[in-house]
Design a protein around this nucleic acid. Structure first.
Lengths: 217, 217
DNA sequence: GTAATAGTGTCTATCAGACATTATAAC
DNA sequence: GTTATAATGTCTGATAGACACTATTAC
């Protein structure tokens, strides 16, 4: 493909102007405390306020590595699986120059955020993200839609629950992501078919003990 | 956001190395002659063979404008609506340097391709795209999946048919995109509800005249 | 026993697939 | 009339929502 880009004037790759490329990430999780789908934000460096974690792409670096580096450096989060969402390409988006930003979605278990720097980061429910610079609110919207689409038909595809888990735990997670209550019986019937029962049950809980399940089918 | 990227060493935006950014497009259409979902390919400049149309992003240019420029210059196609699919970011993908490529999907009516340069371009069914450089086959796969998803539930969302049209015309289009036959009666029931009948009917055709419909609901 | 939660039975509405039937044109 | 296509009727099976009911635990 490269050579097909060389135009009739014979200009080579190095002759073309190049934009800076950044990554920005909507890191979503469901904290135990609130049970609400929330997004990680970090303090901005120069300006007051909060923003999504982001960084510039380093030379020869892959986008996914830049995302993981920014999450490690800015929030102490490791072991994530970012996915691309969209490229924001308005040339006037950044006042300091020509910057393309590749928005990402990442989803983590709350325990993966345990060691985060609480002075420099915060977790905010996705439906009240506060004032954010640039199009970070749009990134959150895209991230939430994508996550809801993923969780609509499959049980916990992003492995937010530690195995084994009960169907109630699974349903609470899916409700947090969907942002609305889900029918207990319908949910059980749809998702239960995609789970493997362990035969063991919870103990010490109120009511009838629930069976514990594994994701693997 | 920009200022939040400045790291603790105080490096500014211009100090970061920058990749070249390209766009590549899977331009899909359904030619009258074959009735098969097909993708536009252009002759490569230096190497033998064919590739998807692409170009480098010009300074301050938006991605969508680069896509439209490449389609105009390489295939004489105008008036399209490209959509982003994915960023290909393997630093070793292009032997001549560090190039990010933003893959796009574009869908056009066959008449929009009437004036194309037939010596430099060809239309190939998407299921037999031939040998393509880099990850252009993957771009086609993503483009087709996305198009099938869009056409699964709505009647001709990308306006490939000139209005008014019959349900048979609509179903043939959807079959070409789905790559499989669709039940006439089920299709009519699902899509018919989302169309507006004009009251007028085809004339001069064999069999019972078909009603003509508009997309608008 | 009561309260609470897990899990199942079952009715209804909706919808896709499949097939039959009716309607209306060209010939 | 015959043939071809459009449009509708209707049966069946699958599934979601809704509600009732049974099962098993803590207390």
């Amino acid at each position: 493909m490269a050579s097909s880009y060389v135009d009739s004037s014979g200009r080579s790759l190095a002759d073309y102007p190049r934009p800076s490329v950044a990554v920005d990430t909507a890191l979503l999780t469901v904290p135990e405390e609130t049970g609400q789908l929330s997004v990680l934000q970090v303090r901005r460096h120069r300006d007051p306020g909060w923003a999504l974690p982001g960084t510039f792409l380093h030379e020869g670096e892959r986008l996914i590595d830049a995302v993981q580096r920014s999450l490690r450096d800015k929030a102490g989060v490791v072991g994530t699986s970012p996915r691309q969402l969209h490229v924001f390409d308005d040339p006037r988006r950044d006042t300091r120059g020509w910057v393309l930003s590749v928005a990402h979605l990442d989803v983590v278990r709350p325990d993966q955020l345990a060691g985060r720097d609480r002075a420099r980061t915060r977790l905010v429910p996705v439906d009240r993200p506060g004032m954010l610079p640039y199009q970070h609110d749009e990134i959150i919207e895209r991230a939430v839609s994508e996550l809801r689409r993923r969780y609509a038909s499959a049980p916990d595809p992003d492995h937010l629950l530690a195995e084994p888990f009960t169907i109630l735990q699974l349903r609470r997670l899916h409700q947090a992501i969907a942002g609305r209550p889900l029918q207990p019986d319908t949910f059980r019937r749809k998702m239960g078919l995609q789970l493997t029962g362990t035969g063991t049950r919870t103990t010490g809980t109120r009511g009838k003990p629930a069976e514990l399940y594994l994701r693997e089918r």
